[in-house]
């Protein structure tokens, strides 16, 4: 049994985009705040803090997770992936990110991190999604700038590109 006292800070350790991280948090600290303000991983954004807008979505142990509805303490020992872990290197964008740029699938970019995380997670498990499936997936996110259709287009393009590159790899 681990009981963390309310008024004290406790160590929280997990793996963030493949690297071990550690800091301290009170039991009430939200994962979104821990990522952003303790660890400096500010790519994950906070839009509503009641689980509706989807901006703060990250992946915890392979599960899509609203980081505003999750305590930092809950993910102790887990594997986390955030938007900072998507690009293959600092000066290159991944296939999905490139598709977003090509399709003008973002404007202000504030909601984008959460949407990218949902898509990255989904496409890795469902490589050939239909438009309806993408729309269903992304109904858990709110974007106020784009009107959504460029996002859907980017997602479908990225899926096609990822599938064909996989085929090429397996053919080779």
């Amino acid at each position: 049994m681990t009981r963390l006292k309310a008024d004290q800070r406790h160590a929280v350790r997990f793996s963030l985009n493949g690297k071990p991280v550690e800091d301290e948090a009170e039991p009430r600290m939200l994962l979104s705040d821990f990522l952003r303000h303790q660890l400096g991983a500010t790519g994950t954004h906070v839009g509503c803090e009641h689980g509706v807008c989807g901006a703060c979505t990250v992946v915890v142990d392979g599960m899509l997770t609203r980081s505003c509805l999750t305590l930092a303490a809950q993910v102790d020992g887990c594997e986390l992936k955030t938007v900072e872990g998507l690009a293959p290197s600092a000066d290159r964008l991944g296939v999905l990110q490139q598709a977003f740029r090509r399709n003008h699938a973002l404007q202000c970019g504030f909601c984008t991190a959460g949407i990218l995380m949902s898509l990255d997670h989904y496409l890795s498990r469902h490589p050939t999604p239909s438009e309806a499936e993408i729309r269903d997936l992304l109904s858990g996110h709110i974007c106020r700038c784009t009107g959504y259709t460029p996002i859907i287009q980017a997602a479908l393009e990225a899926a096609a590109e990822l599938t064909s590159s996989k085929k090429e790899t397996s053919n080779a």
């Binding site: 952003r36 991983a41 500010t42 790519g43 994950t44 954004h45 906070v46 955030t82 938007v83 900072e84 998507l86 690009a87 600092a90 964008l93 990110q97 977003f100 740029r101 090509r102 003008h104 973002l106 202000c108 970019g109 504030f110 984008t112 991190a113 990218l116």
Partner: peptide, 21 residues
């Protein structure tokens, strides 16, 4: 021309600089 946006690389990689960032 619809060139790619210069703003996008940072925003897509989580390197935006919004006020709370």
């Amino acid at each position: 021309r619809s060139i790619e946006r210069v703003e996008d690389a940072a925003l897509l990689a989580g390197r935006g600089r919004f006020i709370d960032d």
